[in-house]
Nucleic acid binder design. Sequence first.
DNA 1: GTTCGACCATACCAGTCGGTATGGAAAGTT
DNA 2: AACTTTCCATACCGACTGGTATGGTCGAAC
Lengths: 238, 238
Amino acid sequence: MKAKPARPPAAQMPPRLAQSAFELFAERGFARVNLDQIAARAGVTKGSLYWHYRSKHELLLAACNRYYQQWHAAVQAAIAPRPDPLDRLRAALEFSVHSCVLDTQNRMFTTSLFLLMQEDAGARAGWAQFYAAVREFYVGLVATAQAAGRLPPGDARRRVDLMLEAMEGLKLRAGFEPQVAQPAEQQAILASLLGIFQTGVPQTMPAGMEPATAHLHRHPTPPGRTQPTACTPPSERS
Amino acid sequence: MKAKPARPPAAQMPPRLAQSAFELFAERGFARVNLDQIAARAGVTKGSLYWHYRSKHELLLAACNRYYQQWHAAVQAAIAPRPDPLDRLRAALEFSVHSCVLDTQNRMFTTSLFLLMQEDAGARAGWAQFYAAVREFYVGLVATAQAAGRLPPGDARRRVDLMLEAMEGLKLRAGFEPQVAQPAEQQAILASLLGIFQTGVPQTMPAGMEPATAHLHRHPTPPGRTQPTACTPPSERS
DNA sequence: GTTCGACCATACCAGTCGGTATGGAAAGTT
DNA sequence: AACTTTCCATACCGACTGGTATGGTCGAAC
C-alpha cells in the first residue's frame, strides 16, 4: 500500500496538458479558457504548466497535434474494414459529414483555430500541413476509385478541394442550422458531396437553347422579399 | 465661422458606432477589440457608446447588420448590368469568390462571428436569417437560369446549399493557402462552383464495370507519404 | 548522506476590459 | 428665463488574466 499518491511520471505531463488544452479549447474556445483551468484539468497548477510549455500559444499548437492525430486515427478506423475503393471513399465521407455535423467539439475547436490563424503564422502553417495531408488522403481514395472504374475520370485534386471546402462550410452551417444533423439530411448531403466525384466533365449549355416550357418555371422567390431583413436593428432603445 | 466643432446630430451616432465596430471587428476580431477603440473611431467615448448600445454584444449585432447590408448592395451592383440569367449567376459567383478570397476583413469578421455563434443564440439567429436571404437570392438566380434553359434542371436549393458551403470553406482556406488568390486559380474555382449547377443528375457507376484502361491510371500519390506529419510537436523544450 | 537538477505549488504582479456613476453641455419645451 | 430631456465626457470600479518570482519536494547520482 502506498500512502502517497506518487505523482505521475513527468514524461506524460506534456501530452496530458495538451489533451486538457484541446478539450477545453473545444468546449469554450481559445479566448475563454485560462491557463489555470488547463492546468487544473491535468491535475497540476499553472506553475507546472509553464515548466512544460512556454506560453498559451505553444499549448495551442500542441492541442492542434492532438486534433490531427485523433482525426487521422478515427477516419482510418472508419474505412479500414471496407475493401471496395468507392465504399472506402463513401465511408470516409460519411464519417466526415457525421463528425462535422454532430461533433460540436470539433466545430468549436476548428472555428477557434481559424480565428487564431488570421494573425498567427504558426497556426496557419500547422493547419496548412494538416489540410495537405487530408487532401492527399482523399485524392488517394478518389484516384484509386477512378482507376478501379468505380468513378468517372476527372481532376481528382480539384474535386477534392471543392469537397473539402464544402465540408468545412457544412461544419459552420451546422452551427446555426441544426436541422442538417437529421439523418435524412445527412444522407442527402453525403449524396451531394459524392456527386462531386460522380459527375463527368460538366456540360456547358450555350445560350439560345430555350425550352418551350420556360414560362412554366416561375421565379420561386417573391421579388418583394429579396431584401435581407437580417437581425432587428438594435439601435433603438426602450 | 463656427468656433466649436458643432457635434454631429445624434441620430447618426448609432450607425457610426456600428460601422466602427464592424471595421474593428473585421480588422482584429471581436475579442481583441475593446469598447474604447470602437468609441474613439466613431469620435466619441465609451460613456457615449453606452448611451446608444447596451453592451458589446448588442454592438456586434449592429455590426452584423452593416455586413449584411454591404454584402447585399455589393452583389446587387455586381449583377445589375447583366441581363442574361446565366451571366447573372456567374457574375454573382465571381464577385463572391473574389471577395471570399481577397477580402481579409470579410474573412476576419465572419470567422470571428462564427466563433461567437457557438455560444450566442442571438448571433446564430441573425446569421441564419442572413444565410436564408443569401440562399434565396442564389436559388432565384439558379431557378431563373434553369427556366431559361441556360442550366440543366435539378434541385436548385440543394445545389445552392452545396455551393454556399464550398464558398464558406473557400474563405477559410484562403486564410492559410494564399495561392488561391491568384487570378487563374480564382477562375478555376469559379468553374468548379459553376459546375455544381451545370451538371445533370449524377450517374452512379455500378460495381464491376472496370474499364480496360484501368491499369493506365496509376495512384498519383506515393503510398509512403499518406501519413499526416502535422506540425512538429512543441512539447520538447531546449 | 549530501548534492543537484527536474518538477511542481504558492503568491503575486502589471495590465486590460466591460460596465457604471455622475455631472455637465446642448437642445427642445413651456 | 426656467426647466426638462437628450446626449456625451470623465473618472472609476471590480473582476479577470497571462506571465513571473520564488521556494519547496522528490528522486537519482555520487
